[in-house]
Amino acid sequence: MQADKVIQVHNLVKKFGNFTANDALSFDVYRGEIFGFLGANGAGKTTTIKILTGLSKPTSGDISVAGFDVYKQSDDIKRNIGYMSQKFSLYEDLSIVENIRLYGGIYGLSRKEIKNRTNALLSRLGIEDKANVLIGSLPLGWKQKIAFSVAIVHNPDIVFLDEPSSGVDPITRRQFWDMIYEAAHQGITVFVTTHYMDEAEYCDRVAILVSGKMVALDSPGKLKHDYDEDSMEGVFVKLARGKRSFVKNNK
């Protein structure tokens, strides 16, 4: 497994004018891994995700995703990944089934495959009776669970999740993470950003970005040990701005 690197990033630099959004990032992500990508608002996370998903070209660096080069093979990359963002991924005025059909079609699945996967998805989420309900009328937590299922409907090598659980309540977040674990267990590599530090604990490894630079990359257990903190919240706050952790009287 160690040898199977699905994402390889070497010296990634992305500049916007004089501003360096990503400053010489290097890391690998292994197959089936849940890789957490953490950083404060404005640290450069979305910039990296856009490059890894083939939406934006790096200024310099060697980067390959799912075995394809980000400069020359961005279309191949797009076919082999799934992507879900907090802001938008499903069409509000299409029904659940229509959204699945749309994305399945875009990813080139056959009608039969689309039908099978639609049924599997609806039964996995226990929403067979809601198949024709418009996405726009569903609560946020549901939308996010459906969006994730749709993002992996074509069984991609890697799924990128950009703050997938923002603003979602604790129970739904847990159900969501069950789905992430399940996907990783099936061999889909998960690349996820989050502001919830308890979710950082669920990742196999996490990278922490501060002002465009990578300041830490390891398993949550190792990072907590190295920074002498008992939670990822503590590690993050220490690294991100050298401040105290969230709850004043923690213990």
Partner: peptide, 8 residues
């Protein structure tokens, strides 16, 4: 959607 440090 606000990061851990800004929340503090």
């Amino acid at each position: 959607g606000v990061d851990a440090v800004s929340r503090v």
